[in-house]
Design a protein around this nucleic acid. Structure first.
Length: 602
RNA sequence: GCCGACGUAGCUCAAUCGGCAGAGCACCCGCCUUGUAAGCGGGCGGUUACGGGUUCGAUUCCCGUCGUCGGCUCCA
C-alpha cells in the first residue's frame, strides 16, 4: 500500500467514521435526551462527544458496545443526501449543537467539525438504520463491511465543546476499530507493551525518581540513579556546547517583579507563574518560569560590540511553572524543571547560520540517542491572538516566521507548520515526540525572539558605529532534564546505553567463597570511574542474575572458583550474550570504549 | 482548572451482604555453598490517603479535602 494515501481516503477511516455514527445511535437509544455533537475518526479509532442527561460509567460501555454489534449485524446501508441549510435545521431542530454546526457550514469558513475551511461546503447528511447525522462522510456502504469483532469501546473522558475551555464539558467516548480482529488484538497487545515502557512505572522500578504528597504535585525528587542520569546529560551538553562556542552563566531562581514586567512575562505568562512573594511592603519577588530575562540582563551588563556576536549564554537553569493540576504527567510535565537553556544574541545577518546551528545540534543529539520518531514543527502565531497570547506586531511576526521558514528550507530540514503554537515573543521550531502511551510532547525547542531584546533595550554597536538591537534565539535541544529523562526512560525501555546506565556493572560471585575476589574486581573498576557494585548477599547466583537483569544493568560479571583462580571474569550482558573467562583488562577495554564513544551497543 | 474513575504494607494486589485487615515480592535473621532470570525456613512491616458523618460496628455506605489515573484545555 502506498504511504501517500491520506488517512481520509482509507477504508479504515470509513469503518471508524461509520462506527462513530453507530455508537451515537446506540447511545441515543439508551439515553434519548442526549444531545450529540461530533464524532470523527482519530488515530487508531474514533470518538463521539455527547451532552448526556446523566453521567455514564465504564460498565455502560459494555451495553453500548453490545448494541453496536447488533446494529452492525443488521446490514444497514449508509445513505448520503445533500440538503439545504433549511432542511438541515428542520431535521436537527432538537439538536442545538448540530444547529450551531449548520450555521457554521452555511456561513462557510468551517467544516462540520468546526475546523477552519477556505471554501463554502455543501451540507449533507448520512443515514443508516434509524440514525441521521450531519456529515460529509465518507462512510462504508453497508454495516456488513464492518467486522463486529474488530472494534472495542475504550474509555470515557471529558472534552470541551469545540475544544474551548469556556464551553460546556461534554462526555467523550473513545473506541478503537480495525479491519480484522487480529489487528485489534495486535493493537491491544501493543498498548500493554507500551504500559510496560511507561516512565512512571519504570522510574519507580529502576529507582530513578519519586513523588511525595508532602513535597507537592509535579515536584519530582531525583533518586541517586536519576542524579546520575542528570550528571551524564549535563556532561554531554557541556561538551557539545563548549565546542559550539557557548559560554556558561548562572542566575538566581528568584527575581523582583520588575524584571518580569519588563520581559513581558507578567502580562503574557502570568497564569503559568507561581504567585509572588512579598516580604517588604510593595516589593514582590517571583520564582522564575524562564531564564531568559536574566540572560538578557547579562547581555546588557555592559556595552557590546558586533565583534562579540553571536554571544551564546548557556545555563542548565531550574525554573518553576504553575502547571494546572490536571496537566501534570509523571516527569514529562512537572512544576519544577531544569532546562538545557541557552540564549544566542546575534545580528539579523547571522540569524540563519545560528538558527541552523541549533537545528544541527538537535540532529546530533537525536542521532546519538537513536531517536527517529519525531516531527519538527514550525510554530506560528495566529492573527486572533495578537495582543493577547502574542506580542502585537504583525509585521515582525510575518518577517521572522519567514526567516525561520527560509532557513529550514535552505537547510533541507523537513518540517510541518502549525498556526497558533508560537511563543509569545516569536515563532519557533519545536520537536514533537510521543510518550509510550501516545501523548504528544514538545521535546526540544528553538525559538526566535524579536520582541524582548528591545524591551530590555539590548544593543550592540555595529561596524558602522551604529547601535543595533540583536535578535535572540532561545533554544533547549535537550529539553528539560525532567522531560528528556522521562522520554529517554521510555525510548530505551529502561535499558540505557552503558554511558547513561546508573549502574554499569554488577559483579556476581557464584558462592560466597568468591566474595573477596568480587569485591576486589569492583574496587578496581570503580577506580577507573566505572559505576559498579558487587552483590555479596546470601542469595544464590541465579537470583542475583535475575535481580541484575530486572534492574537492566548492562554488564554482569559472574565469577566462580575458576575465574578467581585465573584472574578472569565471565561476562554476561543484559541481552543474554556471554563471554566466558575473559581477562579483566579485556572487559575494561570494552566498557571504556563503549563509555567514551557513548555507544549504543553493549 | 474541567469531566469521569480510583486511593489497603516500600512494591503488586486480596478481603462475600457493613462483622477480628491478608498474600507474594522487597527488607532483616538463620540454614544451604550453589555455573548464567527466583534454594529453604523464620521475622519485621497497617491510624485501610486525610477529615467528618451514618451505624452496635465502616477498608466497605454518605459528604468534604488531598493525591493519582484516563481524557479535555495548556505546555519544556
Amino acid at each position: 500500500m502506498s504511504e501517500n494515501i491520506r488517512y481520509e481516503d482509507t477504508f479504515l477511516y470509513r469503518i471508524r467514521h461509520s462506527l462513530a455514527h453507530i455508537m451515537a445511535q446506540a447511545v441515543l437509544e439508551f439515553y434519548p435526551d442526549t444531545k450529540y455533537t461530533i464524532g470523527p475518526p482519530v488515530e487508531n479509532g474514533f470518538y463521539y462527544d455527547f451532552d448526556l442527561p446523566q453521567p455514564i460509567s465504564q460498565e455502560d460501555l459494555e451495553k453500548i458496545e453490545k448494541r453496536m454489534r447488533q446494529i452492525v449485524a443488521g446490514q444497514h446501508p449508509f445513505i448520503k443526501k445533500v440538503i439545504s441549510a433549511e432542511e438541515a435545521r428542520q431535521i436537527f431542530q432538537n439538536q442545538p449543537y448540530k444547529i450551531e454546526l449548520i450555521e457554521g457550514l452555511e456561513k462557510g469558513g468551517f467544516d462540520e467539525y468546526g475546523n477552519p475551511l477556505d471554501t463554502k461546503p455543501e451540507i449533507s447528511i448520512y443515514q443508516h438504520d434509524t440514525f441521521v447525522d450531519l456529515c460529509r462522510g465518507p462512510h462504508v456502504e453497508n454495516t456488513k463491511q464492518i467486522n463486529p469483532s474488530a472494534f472495542k469501546l475504550m474509555s470515557i473522558a471529558g472534552a470541551y465543546w469545540r475544544g474551548d475551555e469556556k464551553n460546556k464539558m461534554l462526555t467523550r467516548i473513545y473506541g478503537t476499530a480495525w479491519e480484522k480482529p487480529d489487528d485489534l488484538k495486535h493493537y491491544l497487545q501493543m498498548l500493554e507493551e507500551a504500559k510496560k515502557r511507561d516512565h512512571r512505572k519504570l522510574g519507580k522500578e529502576l529507582e530513578i525518581f519519586t513523588f511525595d504528597d508532602e513535597v507537592g504535585p509535579g515536584l519530582p525528587l531525583w533518586l541517586p540513579n536519576g542524579g546520575i542520569l542528570i550528571e551524564e546529560l549535563e556532561k554531554l551538553a557541556k561538551e557539545m556546547e563548549e565546542r559550539a562556542g557557548y559560554q556558561r552563566v548562572r542566575t538566581p531562581h528568584l527575581t523582583k517583579e520588575d524584571l518580569f514586567l519588563r520581559s513581558g512575562h507578567l502580562p503574557y505568562y502570568a497564569e503559568s507563574m507561581y504567585p509572588p512573594m512579598e516580604l517588604e511592603e510593595g516589593v514582590k519577588y517571583y520564582i522564575k518560569p524562564m531564564n531568559c530575562p536574566m540572560h538578557h540582563k547579562i547581555f546588557g551588563a555592559r556595552p557590546r560590540s558586533y565583534r562579540e556576536l553571536p554571544l551564546r549564554l548557556a545555563e542548565y537553569g531550574t525554573c518553576y511553572r504553575y502547571e494546572k493540576s490536571g496537566e501534570l504527567f509523571g516527569l514529562m510535565r512537572v512544576r519544577s524543571m531544569q532546562m538545557n537553556d541557552a540564549h544566542i544574541y546575534c545580528s539579523e545577518e547571522q540569524f540563519e547560520q545560528e538558527f541552523m546551528g541549533v537545528v544541527e545540534l538537535y540532529k546530533k543529539y537525536f542521532d546519538l540517542f537513536g531517536i527517529q520518531k519525531y516531527v519538527m514543527r514550525l510554530s506560528l502565531h495566529s492573527k486572533a491572538g495578537l495582543g493577547k497570547k502574542y506580542v502585537d506586531n504583525e509585521r515582525l511576526w510575518l518577517k521572522t516566521e519567514d526567516m525561520v521558514r527560509r532557513a529550514m528550507l535552505n537547510g533541507g530540514v523537513p518540517f510541518v507548520e502549525a498556526e497558533d503554537e508560537a511563543a509569545f515573543y516569536g515563532p519557533k521550531i519545536d520537536v514533537q515526540i510521543w510518550s509510550a502511551i501516545g501523548r504528544e510532547f514538545t521535546l526540544a525547542t528553538n525559538q526566535v525572539d524579536f520582541a524582548v531584546p528591545a524591551r530590555f533595550d539590548l544593543k550592540f554597536v555595529n561596524k558602522d558605529g551604529q547601535e543595533e538591537t540583536p535578535l535572540c534565539i532561545h533554544r533547549a535541544p535537550l529539553s528539560t532534564h525532567e522531560r528528556m529523562i522521562g522520554f529517554l526512560i521510555e525510548h530505551y525501555g529502561g535499558a540505557f546505553p552503558v554511558w547513561l546506565s546508573p549502574e554499569q556493572v554488577r559483579v556476581i560471585p557464584i558462592t560466597d567463597a568468591q566474595n573477596e575476589y568480587a569485591a576486589n574486581l569492583a574496587a578496581q573498576l570503580r577506580a577507573r570511574g566505572i559505576r559498579v557494585s558487587a552483590d555479596l548477599g546470601s542469595e544464590r547466583m541465579n537470583a542475583k542474575i535475575r535481580a541484575a537483569q530486572m534492574f537492566k544493568v548492562p554488564y554482569m560479571l559472574v565469577v566462580g572458583a575458576n575465574e578467581a583462580a585465573a584472574g578472569t571474569v565471565s561476562l554476561r550482558m543484559r541481552d543474554g550474550a556471554q563471554l566466558n573467562n575473559i581477562p579483566l583488562a579485556e572487559f575494561e577495554a570494552r566498557i571504556t570504549d563503549r563509555i567514551t564513544r557513548r555507544a549504543s551497543e553493549l
